[in-house]
Amino acid sequence: MATSPPPPPAQGGPGFTGFPQQQPRPAGAPGFGPPPGLPSSPGLPPTSPGLPPTPSGPAGGPGGSGGAGGTGRKGGNLRRNAVWAFVGAILASVVWSGAVAVVPRMVQGHSSAQSIHGYHAIDKICEAGKLTAFRQKYKMVDNYPLEHTGRSDSMDIMRCYALMKRSVSGSDTPDYATLDIRVELHKAVDSSPEYAATRHYFEQQKFEIADVPNLGQEAYYAYGDEPTSSDKTFHDINYYLVVRDGGMTFSLYWTDNYQLGKDATLERDTVRRAMLDDTRDILKAIGGK
């Protein structure tokens, strides 16, 4: 009989290794739970228009434990079915729009554009960057990642969205996670006010923030862990790595969830280091040094 895994790290655990950490999120603080439209919101449609299609999963939809011996996710207890594939894309959009809504004065002044320091748009950033660190932990779900690039005189945008899974010891269902990467090359306006506004948004939402040295001109890591609205034992975890280098802005968003006392996701430091390693590879692939 498999033993239950240890509970996930406490909220006040260490931040990005060697970097300063803010105070942890207080219990019940607002943050990023499942957005309206997921099954936990009766009466609303389960999907949002314009988001990528989800693959088929095991019976009952993607679900399962994120740690050895976990049993809490079987039978869809955590609702980890195909609709979770939408979460990454939805939440990433929430962050950018939320930052502008919360601190509009920080993004109203458009000064001259900064150099993009040799960065250039490519068609498939995840293919070029390879996502080696995350692929060592997870297997990409069929037909993923989804990659899109848009080019214009004022800004080039590159986007990669991935649904991944890993086998879990003691469970017959895999652990699923989403990865959402966005790169913008600002050629007409200064990107620094938007970068500052986004960071300020995370601070207002009580995310843990840690500066990341030696990555672009400035970079930070943001982490949030909170109960879902339906059951306090179920938690959503959200990781962001945001970088600015002149007119280039980059964000990597990774999300997963777990049940207290029954499931465990990858350790925080493991996720952070995978984020950092894959970010460096992607930035190098689009012309970074």
Rank of each mutant, 00 (worst) to 15 (best):
V242N: 10
D256P: 00
T228Y: 03
D225W: 03
T178I: 08
S40E: 13
Y240T: 06
F32A: 08
A285D: 03
A29S: 14
V87H: 08
G69S: 11
P5N: 12
D153F: 05
R166M: 05
G170E: 10
K206I: 01
L266K: 00
D281S: 15
T54N: 07
V183L: 15
R79G: 03
V94K: 10
M275L: 15
R151Y: 10
S251M: 12
A219N: 08
P30L: 09
D175N: 15
H186Y: 13
F134G: 01
S229V: 06
P14D: 12
Y220K: 04
D277R: 05
P52K: 04
G88E: 10
S191A: 15
Y201K: 03
A89V: 13
K165D: 02
Q23E: 14
M158S: 01
G224A: 13
P49A: 11
I237V: 14
K232W: 13
R73L: 13
P34Y: 07
Q114C: 08
V141N: 00
I209K: 09
A222I: 05
A133S: 13
G118Y: 04
A222W: 02
P39E: 11
Q114A: 14
V95W: 01
P7K: 14
L266V: 04
Y220A: 05
G31E: 05
H200P: 04
K124W: 00
T249F: 03
M140K: 01
W96R: 12
T233E: 09
F16V: 09
D256K: 02
Y253N: 13
P104I: 01
I116R: 01
E218W: 04
Y258I: 06
E147G: 02
I237C: 00
G64R: 05
H120P: 02
G66M: 05
R244K: 15
K206S: 13
V95A: 04
P34V: 07
S41P: 00
V168N: 04
F86Q: 15
N143W: 10
S48Q: 13
N81V: 06
Q205G: 06
A162I: 04
R79S: 07
